[in-house]
Amino acid sequence: MKIQDLVDSLGLVVFTGQTLLDNEVTGGYTSDLLSDVMGFAKEGNIWITLQTHKNVIGVASLKDLSAILLIKGFEPDQDALALAEKEDIPILGTKMGAFEISAKIYNLINS
């Protein structure tokens, strides 16, 4: 499954990374703790979180994640947006909460 498929199916906002939506999604990881993601997210995962600061981009880049998805209508900080563009990490958004969007993404990836 590609990021683009998730964007289309779930009506996700694309804050940055429009040209990176062909990235393959290997699964998802839902967490607001950076060490948790650092330790346990897998390459190609989409990271579902409410953290909007630039350290999230740093972690996503170090872990080779496929995208960051901000929940509950949160928007990325300005410096996070700039770093994401530089590091080629797509940032997406949804109005849904973590539980609901994680379930939907899980079902799409595993269907």
Partner: peptide, 15 residues
């Protein structure tokens, strides 16, 4: 609040 301070850093380093 930034999502640091989970107390997982040193265990992650060890592992």
């Amino acid at each position: 609040e930034m999502g640091f301070g989970a107390g997982m850093g040193l265990p992650n380093i060890r592992d």
